[in-house]
Protein backbone atom coordinates (compact mmCIF):
# COMPACT_ATOMS: atom_id res chain seq x y z
CA UNK A 1 0.00 0.00 0.00
CA UNK A 2 2.75 2.34 1.05
CA UNK A 3 4.81 1.47 -2.01
CA UNK A 4 1.87 2.16 -4.32
CA UNK A 5 1.37 5.52 -2.65
CA UNK A 6 4.98 6.39 -3.22
CA UNK A 7 5.03 5.53 -6.90
CA UNK A 8 1.87 7.58 -7.38
CA UNK A 9 3.52 10.53 -5.62
CA UNK A 10 6.54 10.11 -7.83
CA UNK A 11 4.54 10.06 -11.05
CA UNK A 12 2.52 13.13 -9.97
CA UNK A 13 5.75 15.06 -9.34
CA UNK A 14 7.21 13.84 -12.60
CA UNK A 15 4.04 14.78 -14.45
CA UNK A 16 4.05 18.28 -12.98
CA UNK A 17 7.70 18.66 -13.93
CA UNK A 18 7.02 17.66 -17.53
CA UNK A 19 4.10 20.10 -17.76
CA UNK A 20 6.24 22.89 -16.34
CA UNK A 21 9.01 22.05 -18.76
CA UNK A 22 6.65 22.09 -21.73
CA UNK A 23 5.14 25.43 -20.74
CA UNK A 24 8.55 26.99 -20.25
CA UNK A 25 9.85 25.43 -23.45
CA UNK A 26 7.01 26.83 -25.56
CA UNK A 27 7.09 30.25 -23.95
CA UNK A 28 9.52 31.98 -26.35
CA UNK A 29 7.11 31.21 -29.22
CA UNK A 30 4.40 33.37 -27.68
CA UNK A 31 5.94 36.14 -25.71
CA UNK A 32 8.15 39.17 -25.93
CA UNK A 33 11.86 39.40 -25.40
CA UNK A 34 11.67 40.94 -21.96
CA UNK A 35 9.98 38.00 -20.28
CA UNK A 36 12.49 35.60 -21.81
CA UNK A 37 15.38 37.72 -20.56
CA UNK A 38 13.87 37.83 -17.09
CA UNK A 39 13.31 34.07 -17.17
CA UNK A 40 16.95 33.48 -18.13
CA UNK A 41 17.95 35.39 -15.01
CA UNK A 42 15.47 33.54 -12.84
CA UNK A 43 16.50 30.14 -14.21
CA UNK A 44 20.15 30.97 -13.69
CA UNK A 45 19.59 31.74 -10.03
CA UNK A 46 17.28 28.76 -9.67
CA UNK A 47 20.08 26.51 -10.95
CA UNK A 48 22.62 28.05 -8.58
CA UNK A 49 20.25 27.94 -5.61
CA UNK A 50 19.06 24.37 -6.12
CA UNK A 51 22.64 23.23 -6.77
CA UNK A 52 23.72 24.95 -3.56
CA UNK A 53 20.90 23.32 -1.62
CA UNK A 54 21.88 19.87 -2.90
CA UNK A 55 25.06 19.96 -0.83
CA UNK A 56 24.60 22.62 1.84
CA UNK A 57 20.93 21.91 2.60
CA UNK A 58 21.19 18.46 4.16
CA UNK A 59 24.80 18.65 5.38
CA UNK A 60 24.59 22.11 6.94
CA UNK A 61 28.01 23.04 5.50
CA UNK A 62 27.55 26.62 4.30
CA UNK A 63 29.47 26.82 1.05
CA UNK A 64 30.29 30.25 -0.33
CA UNK A 65 32.25 28.75 -3.23
CA UNK A 66 29.42 29.06 -5.76
CA UNK A 67 31.07 32.04 -7.46
CA UNK A 68 34.29 30.06 -7.92
CA UNK A 69 32.59 27.33 -9.97
CA UNK A 70 30.26 29.73 -11.74
CA UNK A 71 33.22 31.94 -12.64
CA UNK A 72 35.14 28.92 -13.85
CA UNK A 73 32.27 28.34 -16.27
CA UNK A 74 32.67 31.93 -17.47
CA UNK A 75 36.34 31.39 -18.21
CA UNK A 76 35.81 28.05 -19.92
CA UNK A 77 33.32 29.83 -22.15
CA UNK A 78 35.75 32.67 -22.81
CA UNK A 79 38.78 30.47 -23.50
CA UNK A 80 36.99 28.06 -25.83
CA UNK A 81 34.68 30.69 -27.29
CA UNK A 82 34.19 30.17 -31.01
CA UNK A 83 36.26 26.99 -31.18
CA UNK A 84 33.84 24.57 -29.60
CA UNK A 85 30.08 24.18 -30.20
CA UNK A 86 27.85 25.65 -27.47
CA UNK A 87 26.54 22.37 -25.97
CA UNK A 88 30.06 20.96 -25.75
CA UNK A 89 31.22 24.18 -24.12
CA UNK A 90 28.58 23.78 -21.42
CA UNK A 91 29.54 20.16 -20.77
CA UNK A 92 33.21 21.10 -20.66
CA UNK A 93 32.44 23.76 -18.04
CA UNK A 94 30.47 21.25 -15.96
CA UNK A 95 33.29 18.70 -16.15
CA UNK A 96 35.94 21.26 -15.17
CA UNK A 97 33.88 22.46 -12.22
CA UNK A 98 33.46 18.84 -11.13
CA UNK A 99 37.19 18.19 -11.18
CA UNK A 100 38.09 21.45 -9.42
CA UNK A 101 35.39 20.86 -6.79
CA UNK A 102 36.72 17.36 -6.13
CA UNK A 103 40.11 18.88 -5.34
CA UNK A 104 38.68 21.70 -3.23
CA UNK A 105 36.39 19.29 -1.40
CA UNK A 106 39.24 16.91 -0.62
CA UNK A 107 41.26 19.81 0.81
CA UNK A 108 38.53 21.22 3.02
CA UNK A 109 37.36 18.03 4.68
CA UNK A 110 38.85 18.93 8.01
CA UNK A 111 37.01 22.21 8.26
CA UNK A 112 33.65 22.49 9.91
CA UNK A 113 31.12 25.17 10.69
CA UNK A 114 32.14 28.75 10.15
CA UNK A 115 35.67 27.74 9.07
CA UNK A 116 34.29 26.00 6.01
CA UNK A 117 32.30 29.14 5.15
CA UNK A 118 35.40 31.34 5.55
CA UNK A 119 37.50 28.97 3.46
CA UNK A 120 35.08 28.93 0.56
CA UNK A 121 34.69 32.71 0.85
CA UNK A 122 38.45 33.18 0.58
CA UNK A 123 38.66 30.65 -2.23
CA UNK A 124 36.57 32.85 -4.52
CA UNK A 125 38.81 35.84 -3.86
CA UNK A 126 41.95 33.76 -4.29
CA UNK A 127 40.82 32.45 -7.66
CA UNK A 128 39.80 35.95 -8.69
CA UNK A 129 43.26 37.32 -7.89
CA UNK A 130 45.12 34.40 -9.41
CA UNK A 131 43.21 34.72 -12.68
CA UNK A 132 43.80 38.46 -12.64
CA UNK A 133 47.55 37.93 -12.23
CA UNK A 134 47.74 35.13 -14.79
CA UNK A 135 45.93 37.29 -17.34
CA UNK A 136 48.22 40.20 -16.56
CA UNK A 137 51.38 38.15 -17.03
CA UNK A 138 50.36 35.71 -19.77
CA UNK A 139 47.90 37.56 -21.96
CA UNK A 140 48.68 41.07 -20.72
CA UNK A 141 45.03 41.96 -20.60
CA UNK A 142 42.43 42.23 -17.92
CA UNK A 143 39.40 40.77 -19.60
CA UNK A 144 38.36 38.54 -22.45
CA UNK A 145 35.72 38.56 -25.14
CA UNK A 146 33.07 35.91 -25.46
CA UNK A 147 31.20 35.05 -28.61
CA UNK A 148 27.52 35.63 -27.99
CA UNK A 149 24.73 33.12 -28.54
CA UNK A 150 21.16 34.03 -29.49
CA UNK A 151 18.80 34.81 -26.59
CA UNK A 152 16.68 31.80 -27.46
CA UNK A 153 19.72 29.56 -27.53
CA UNK A 154 20.73 30.75 -24.07
CA UNK A 155 17.17 30.36 -22.83
CA UNK A 156 16.88 26.75 -23.94
CA UNK A 157 20.32 25.91 -22.65
CA UNK A 158 19.65 27.26 -19.17
CA UNK A 159 16.18 25.69 -19.19
CA UNK A 160 17.64 22.26 -19.89
CA UNK A 161 20.35 22.72 -17.26
CA UNK A 162 17.66 23.84 -14.81
CA UNK A 163 15.68 20.65 -15.32
CA UNK A 164 18.82 18.55 -15.09
CA UNK A 165 19.60 20.26 -11.79
CA UNK A 166 16.11 19.62 -10.42
CA UNK A 167 16.25 16.02 -11.60
CA UNK A 168 19.64 15.46 -10.00
CA UNK A 169 18.51 17.11 -6.76
CA UNK A 170 15.40 14.91 -6.65
CA UNK A 171 17.35 11.75 -7.37
CA UNK A 172 19.92 12.53 -4.70
CA UNK A 173 17.26 13.38 -2.12
CA UNK A 174 15.39 10.16 -2.73
CA UNK A 175 18.38 7.87 -3.03
CA UNK A 176 20.56 6.35 -0.35
CA UNK A 177 22.89 9.34 -0.73
CA UNK A 178 20.10 11.59 0.45
CA UNK A 179 19.85 9.65 3.69
CA UNK A 180 23.64 9.60 4.00
CA UNK A 181 23.83 13.38 3.55
CA UNK A 182 21.07 13.97 6.05
CA UNK A 183 22.73 11.82 8.67
CA UNK A 184 26.03 13.60 8.06
CA UNK A 185 24.26 16.90 8.66
CA UNK A 186 22.65 15.55 11.83
CA UNK A 187 25.71 13.92 13.37
CA UNK A 188 28.76 13.40 11.25
CA UNK A 189 30.59 11.18 13.74
CA UNK A 190 27.65 8.83 14.18
CA UNK A 191 27.23 8.65 10.41
CA UNK A 192 30.85 7.60 9.99
CA UNK A 193 30.56 4.90 12.64
CA UNK A 194 27.37 3.60 11.04
CA UNK A 195 29.25 2.73 7.87
CA UNK A 196 28.91 5.88 5.78
CA UNK A 197 31.99 6.93 3.85
CA UNK A 198 31.57 10.49 5.04
CA UNK A 199 34.52 11.92 3.13
CA UNK A 200 33.55 10.48 -0.22
CA UNK A 201 29.85 11.28 0.18
CA UNK A 202 30.58 14.92 1.00
CA UNK A 203 33.17 15.43 -1.71
CA UNK A 204 31.13 13.71 -4.40
CA UNK A 205 28.01 15.72 -3.59
CA UNK A 206 29.98 18.95 -3.42
CA UNK A 207 31.47 18.21 -6.84
CA UNK A 208 28.10 17.21 -8.29
CA UNK A 209 26.55 20.49 -7.18
CA UNK A 210 29.50 22.34 -8.74
CA UNK A 211 28.76 20.76 -12.16
CA UNK A 212 25.54 22.74 -12.47
CA UNK A 213 27.14 25.95 -11.22
CA UNK A 214 29.86 25.62 -13.85
CA UNK A 215 27.36 24.89 -16.61
CA UNK A 216 25.25 27.91 -15.63
CA UNK A 217 28.41 30.04 -15.74
CA UNK A 218 29.32 28.93 -19.25
CA UNK A 219 25.80 29.64 -20.50
CA UNK A 220 25.43 33.07 -18.90
CA UNK A 221 28.92 34.13 -20.01
CA UNK A 222 27.64 34.19 -23.57
CA UNK A 223 25.14 36.88 -22.55
CA UNK A 224 28.06 39.24 -22.10
CA UNK A 225 30.52 40.16 -24.76
CA UNK A 226 33.24 41.04 -22.26
CA UNK A 227 34.20 39.34 -18.99
CA UNK A 228 36.94 39.91 -16.46
CA UNK A 229 37.83 38.30 -13.10
CA UNK A 230 35.73 40.80 -11.16
CA UNK A 231 32.64 39.96 -13.20
CA UNK A 232 33.26 36.22 -13.23
CA UNK A 233 34.27 35.66 -9.61
CA UNK A 234 31.84 37.99 -7.89
CA UNK A 235 31.04 37.35 -4.23
CA UNK A 236 27.39 38.20 -4.87
CA UNK A 237 27.14 35.00 -6.86
CA UNK A 238 28.15 33.12 -3.73
CA UNK A 239 25.87 34.90 -1.29
CA UNK A 240 22.73 35.30 -3.37
CA UNK A 241 21.91 31.58 -3.74
CA UNK A 242 22.24 31.16 0.03
CA UNK A 243 19.87 34.04 0.60
CA UNK A 244 17.46 32.85 -2.05
CA UNK A 245 17.39 29.40 -0.50
CA UNK A 246 16.70 30.90 2.91
CA UNK A 247 14.18 33.31 1.42
CA UNK A 248 12.27 30.46 -0.18
CA UNK A 249 12.78 27.85 2.52
CA UNK A 250 14.89 24.71 2.27
CA UNK A 251 12.45 22.03 3.41
CA UNK A 252 11.88 20.87 -0.17
CA UNK A 253 12.91 21.82 -3.70
CA UNK A 254 9.97 24.15 -4.35
CA UNK A 255 11.29 26.60 -1.74
CA UNK A 256 14.67 27.31 -3.37
CA UNK A 257 13.11 27.69 -6.83
CA UNK A 258 10.43 30.00 -5.46
CA UNK A 259 13.07 31.95 -3.52
CA UNK A 260 15.21 32.38 -6.63
CA UNK A 261 12.23 33.49 -8.73
CA UNK A 262 10.86 35.99 -6.20
CA UNK A 263 14.25 37.39 -5.26
CA UNK A 264 15.32 37.84 -8.88
CA UNK A 265 12.02 39.46 -9.74
CA UNK A 266 12.16 41.85 -6.78
CA UNK A 267 15.75 42.69 -7.69
CA UNK A 268 14.68 43.37 -11.27
CA UNK A 269 11.90 45.75 -10.17
CA UNK A 270 14.21 47.57 -7.79
CA UNK A 271 16.87 47.88 -10.46
CA UNK A 272 14.49 49.45 -12.99
CA UNK A 273 12.59 51.69 -10.54
CA UNK A 274 15.39 52.82 -8.24
CA UNK A 275 18.70 52.24 -10.03
CA UNK A 276 20.59 54.35 -7.46
CA UNK A 277 19.03 52.85 -4.39
CA UNK A 278 18.91 49.31 -5.76
CA UNK A 279 21.78 47.84 -3.76
CA UNK A 280 20.76 49.65 -0.59
CA UNK A 281 17.17 48.41 -0.70
CA UNK A 282 18.47 44.99 -1.61
CA UNK A 283 20.56 44.92 1.55
CA UNK A 284 17.56 45.93 3.64
CA UNK A 285 15.36 43.25 2.03
CA UNK A 286 18.09 40.76 2.77
CA UNK A 287 18.33 41.61 6.44
CA UNK A 288 14.58 41.78 6.88
CA UNK A 289 14.05 38.41 5.24
CA UNK A 290 16.70 36.75 7.42
CA UNK A 291 15.19 38.39 10.49
CA UNK A 292 11.53 37.74 9.99
CA UNK A 293 11.33 34.62 7.87
CA UNK A 294 13.41 31.95 9.59
CA UNK A 295 11.74 29.24 7.50
CA UNK A 296 11.50 31.17 4.27
CA UNK A 297 8.49 32.33 2.27
CA UNK A 298 7.18 28.79 2.11
CA UNK A 299 7.51 28.40 5.87
CA UNK A 300 5.75 31.72 6.33
CA UNK A 301 2.92 30.64 4.03
CA UNK A 302 2.59 27.33 5.86
CA UNK A 303 2.46 29.18 9.17
CA UNK A 304 -0.32 31.46 7.93
CA UNK A 305 -2.18 28.46 6.51
CA UNK A 306 -1.89 26.69 9.85
CA UNK A 307 -3.28 29.71 11.67
CA UNK A 308 -6.19 29.99 9.23
CA UNK A 309 -7.00 26.36 9.81
CA UNK A 310 -7.36 27.06 13.52
CA UNK A 311 -4.03 26.42 15.09
CA UNK A 312 -3.80 22.69 14.42
CA UNK A 313 -0.61 21.07 13.19
CA UNK A 314 -0.11 21.24 9.46
CA UNK A 315 0.26 17.89 7.76
CA UNK A 316 3.91 17.28 7.09
Amino acid sequence: MKAIQMTRDKSVTLGLLIVAFLILALLPQFTSGYLVTLLIDILKFAVLTVAWVVFSGPTGYMSLATAAFYGLGFYIAAVFSGTVPFPLLIMLAGASAFVVALGVGALTLRLRGVYFAIFTFALVLLVQNVVLEVERVVTQTRGRFVETVSTEGVYYAILIVFFLTILAAMLIRRSRYGLALQSIGEYEEAAAHSGINVVWTKVLTFATSAVFMGMAGAIIATRRTYIDPYIAFNLNTSFLPVLMAMFGGMGNLVGPVLGAALFTYIGEILLTRFPDLYMLIFGVVLIVSILFMPNGVLGLAQGVWRKMRGGGHAPS
Binding site: M62, V114, V242, L243, L280, G283, L286, I290
Partner: peptide, 13 residues
Protein backbone atom coordinates in the same frame (compact mmCIF):
# COMPACT_ATOMS: atom_id res chain seq x y z
CA UNK B 1 25.41 31.12 9.52
CA UNK B 2 22.53 33.55 9.75
CA UNK B 3 24.56 36.34 11.29
CA UNK B 4 27.16 35.93 8.55
CA UNK B 5 24.42 36.39 5.95
CA UNK B 6 22.85 39.30 7.81
CA UNK B 7 26.22 41.01 7.98
CA UNK B 8 26.47 40.57 4.21
CA UNK B 9 23.20 42.49 3.95
CA UNK B 10 24.68 45.08 6.28
CA UNK B 11 27.66 45.38 3.94
CA UNK B 12 25.31 46.42 1.13
CA UNK B 13 23.43 48.87 3.30
Amino acid sequence: GKSLLASFGLLYV
